[in-house]
Design a protein around this nucleic acid. Structure first.
Length: 563
RNA sequence: GGCCCCGUCGUCUAGAGGCCUAGGACGCCGCCCUCUCAAGGCGGUAACGCCGGUUCGAAUCCGGUCGGGGCUACCA
C-alpha cells in the first residue's frame, strides 16, 4: 500500500500517449472565456443522447432549463452527448429537432440544423474529443489519473471476489490493480500495444462522507466517491472519447454553465462529479436534480420507459397531434403544482420556480392530458383548428390532408357545428388532431363508409326490422332542417324523428322507458341513435339537425337508405 | 449487500404545530338540464403507509419501520 501521493508517470511517458500538437488546457480556457452576463443570469443546458426519439421527460427537463435561462436573461445551451457511439441511432438528431420544434423549445446555442450557433461550440461531444484529451493528459501528468490495462476478465474476477467476500463492489483501494502500477509495467504493456482506459484516481477515502446542496432537494450527505472511474474510454476505439462524467465536467465548465438541471438518477454521482471538478481545478457548479416522470406498472411506479411505453416518446405526441399548448400546460403543471390551477395562457407565461418542484416523480396521466387537450381545442375556432390539422396530416394522414385541402369549406362547416363565437358550450370531442378523422370524417362522403347492415352492433342490439323501419320511415318523410335562424328550428326538425319513433312504439322519453323497459323496443334515445349511426357512423356526433344541414338532403338520404 | 432520494384521495396536488370535520383539479358514481350525442350544472366517492416519541395539540417536528425509486457500466 502506497502512502501519500504516488509518483505520477513521467511527463514524457504521459505525453507520448497523446498527439504531439494537443493543446494545453489553458488554450481551451482562453478559447471559451467566462461569459459576460448579468450576475443573476443562469446559463443552463439540456444534454440528450442521440438514441432515437426524445423521451417526453426530455421535453420536461429541457423546458425547465430553457425557462430558467430565459427568465434570468441567461443562455440555454443544447448539447449532444454522443460519447457512446454504439448506441447512436441514425435519424435521432432529426427527431430531436422535430421534437424541440414541435414544443417550441429553441436553444440559444447548439449544433442546430447542421450549423453551430454560439461561440462555445462545437456542442456535440464527439466533435470535442481533443478538448477532453487535453484535460485527461493534464490529470495524468499530475498523477490524478492513470492508465488501466485491466481486461473484462480481470474486472469480472474482481467483482466476483468482492461479491464472495462481501466487499463493496467497485474499482478502488487495493482492488484497483493498476492504480499504483510501476512505470515499467505500464511501459511494457504499452509497448505490447495492449489497449487501456484512463481512470480517475479518486481522492475519496472509504467511510468518508460529503455534504453538498442540491437546488431542489437541499442539503444532502452521502458517502464520498472512492471509485476510480473510467474517464477516457479504451484506446482500442478509433476516436478516444471520454465517459459522461469527465465530459460533463469539462463541457459544463468550458461552456460556462451555471446551473445543471437533470433528473434524479444523477444524484448519486454528485460526489464523483465534485471530485472531478476539484481535480480539474474548476469552480463547482450548482445542481438541481428533478424527479423523473413515472408510470404506474402493476401497482408500482417506475420510470417511463421509451421501450415499453409509447407515451414516453415525444414522437407519440407528434404523431397523435396533441396540440403543443396542451402538452406544455400539462407538463408545466407537473413541474409546479400551482400552475395547474391557472388558466392555460397564464400558466404558460408564469415563471417556473425550482423551489416549487415536487420531490417525488409524478405519474404521467394521459387521461388528464386528454381532458386538458380537449378543453384547449374546444376553445379554438373552426378556422384555427383547420389551420393546424393539415400540416400535421400531411405527414401522419396524407389522405385526410388531401381532403381538407380540396374541401376546406365543408370541413369548416363541419367544425363550426356547436363551436366558435357565440357558442357558450363548445364541443369537447377533439383532443388531438388524430381524432379528427374518427369524429368528423363522416362529413366527407369520400371517407364515409355507409352503414348497410341492420344488425350492426352500433345500433345497440335493436331488432333489424325496427332499424329498417326507422330508416325507411325517416327517408320517406324526410324534410331538411330549415336554416337555423332561431333555436326552435332544430326542434321542428327533430319532430320528424320523434313522431316516427312514437309510431314504431318507442318510449317518448327515458323516464317512461325506464319505468317499463319491456313495453317498448327502446326509448327515443335509441330511436334517434339509429338515425345518428346511419348518418354519422357513430353513436356520438354533433347536433344531428346541424349535421344534416351541413351534409345536404341528398347525402343524408343516400346514407339513411343504405341499410 | 452498501449508499442516496421519495411517501397526503385512483392520479396531480394544497398543506411549512392549532385556520384540517384535510381544500382544489382530473377520473369515477349519481342526479338535473335536454329533442338525440356531447357539453354544462349540482351532489357524492375517496388520502395524511405503519409504529413509537416530543407537545395541551402533529399531515406538519424527531426516531424507527415498511413500501417505492435510483446509483453501485469503457450507458448516459
Amino acid at each position: 500500500m502506497t502512502v501519500g501521493s504516488p509518483a505520477a508517470l513521467s511527463r514524457e511517458l504521459v505525453d507520448s500517449l497523446f498527439p504531439a500538437g494537443l493543446p494545453e488546457p489553458s488554450h481551451w480556457e482562453e478559447r471559451y472565456p467566462p461569459r459576460d452576463l448579468p450576475a443573476a443570469a443562469e446559463v443552463t443546458r439540456f444534454a440528450p443522447s442521440p438514441t432515437g426519439w426524445l423521451h417526453i421527460g426530455g421535453i420536461y427537463t429541457a423546458s425547465v432549463s430553457r425557462d430558467l435561462a430565459r427568465q434570468s436573461r441567461g443562455v440555454y445551451v443544447l448539447r449532444i452527448e454522443d460519447t457512446d457511439q454504439s448506441r447512436f441511432e441514425e435519424g435521432a438528431l432529426a427527431q430531436f429537432e422535430a421534437g424541440f420544434d414541435y414544443f417550441g423549445i429553441q436553444a440559444d446555442e447548439g449544433d442546430l440544423g447542421g450549423e453551430t450557433k454560439g461561440r462555445y461550440g462545437p456542442y456535440t461531444q464527439s466533435a470535442r474529443a481533443e478538448i477532453y484529451q487535453s484535460y485527461v493528459r493534464e490529470l495524468l501528468r499530475e498523477g490524478k489519473a492513470y492508465p488501466c490495462f485491466a481486461t473484462k476478465e480481470d474486472l469480472a474476477e474482481i467483482t466476483a471476489k468482492q461479491k464472495a467476500t462481501g466487499a463493496l463492489p467497485g474499482y478502488y483501494g487495493d482492488w484497483a490493480i493498476w492504480r499504483d502500477a510501476p512505470q515499467e509495467q505500464v511501459r511494457e504493456r504499452l509497448a505490447k500495444g495492449d489497449p487501456y482506459v484512463v481512470r480517475f484516481r479518486s481522492p475519496g477515502i472509504g467511510g468518508q462522507r460529503v455534504t453538498f446542496t442540491d437546488v431542489i432537494r437541499g442539503e444532502i450527505t452521502a458517502d464520498d466517491n472512492r471509485n476510480d472511474v473510467v474517464i477516457l474510454k479504451s484506446s482500442a476505439n478509433e476516436v478516444r472519447l471520454p465517459t459522461y462524467h469527465l465530459a460533463h465536467a469539462v463541457d459544463d465548465h468550458l461552456m460556462r454553465i451555471t446551473l445543471v438541471v437533470r433528473t434524479d438518477e444523477w444524484l448519486s454521482s454528485v460526489p464523483l462529479h465534485l471530485q472531478l471538478f476539484d481535480a480539474l481545478g474548476f469552480d463547482r457548479i450548482r445542481y438541481a436534480h428533478a424527479a423523473p416522470l413515472m408510470k404506474l406498472d402493476a401497482g408500482n411506479r417506475r420510470k417511463l420507459s421509451k421501450r415499453k411505453d409509447p407515451e414516453a416518446s415525444v414522437g407519440y405526441y407528434i404523431e397523435q397531434g396533441f396540440p403543443r399548448e396542451a402538452v406544455q400546460y400539462y407538463l408545466r403543471g407537473l413541474m409546479n403544482g400551482r400552475l395547474a390551477e391557472l388558466p392555460l395562457p397564464e400558466a404558460l407565461a408564469a415563471p417556473i420556480r425550482l423551489d416549487d418542484f415536487g420531490l417525488a416523480g409524478p405519474l404521467l396521466d394521459m387521461v388528464k392530458l386528454d381532458d386538458i387537450s380537449a378543453d384547449y381545442v374546444s376553445g379554438l375556432t373552426g378556422e384555427e383548428i383547420l389551420d393546424r390539422i393539415p400540416p400535421w396530416a400531411e405527414t401522419y394522414d396524407p389522405d385526410l390532408a388531401t381532403i381538407l385541402h380540396t374541401e376546406r369549406t365543408p370541413a369548416l362547416r363541419a367544425l363550426s357545428v356547436e363551436r366558435g363565437a357565440g357558442v357558450e358550450n363548445p364541443r369537447k370531442d377533439l383532443r388531438k388532431w388524430a381524432d379528427f378523422r374518427p369524429v368528423y370524417g363522416f362529413f366527407f362522403p369520400e371517407i364515409f363508409r355507409l352503414v348497410t347492415d341492420p344488425a350492426d352492433e352500433r345500433f345497440g342490439g335493436l331488432a333489424p326490422d325496427i332499424v329498417r323501419a326507422m330508416a325507411s320511415g325517416f327517408a320517406d318523410g324526410y324534410t331538411a332542417p330549415p336554416a337555423k335562424t332561431e333555436p326552435s328550428a332544430d326542434t321542428a326538425w327533430f319532430d320528424q324523428v320523434r313522431s316516427l319513433a312514437a309510431s314504431l312504439g318507442f318510449a317518448p322519453n327515458q323516464k317512461t322507458y325506464k319505468k317499463d323497459p319491456d313495453a317498448y323496443p327502446g326509448s327515443i334515445a335509441d330511436a334517434s341513435a339509429v338515425i345518428r349511426v346511419l348518418i354519422t357512423g357513430s353513436r356520438r356526433s354533433p347536433d344531428l339537425a346541424e349535421v344534416c344541414t351541413a351534409l345536404g338532403a341528398e347525402e343524408v338520404l343516400r346514407r339513411v337508405r343504405a341499410v
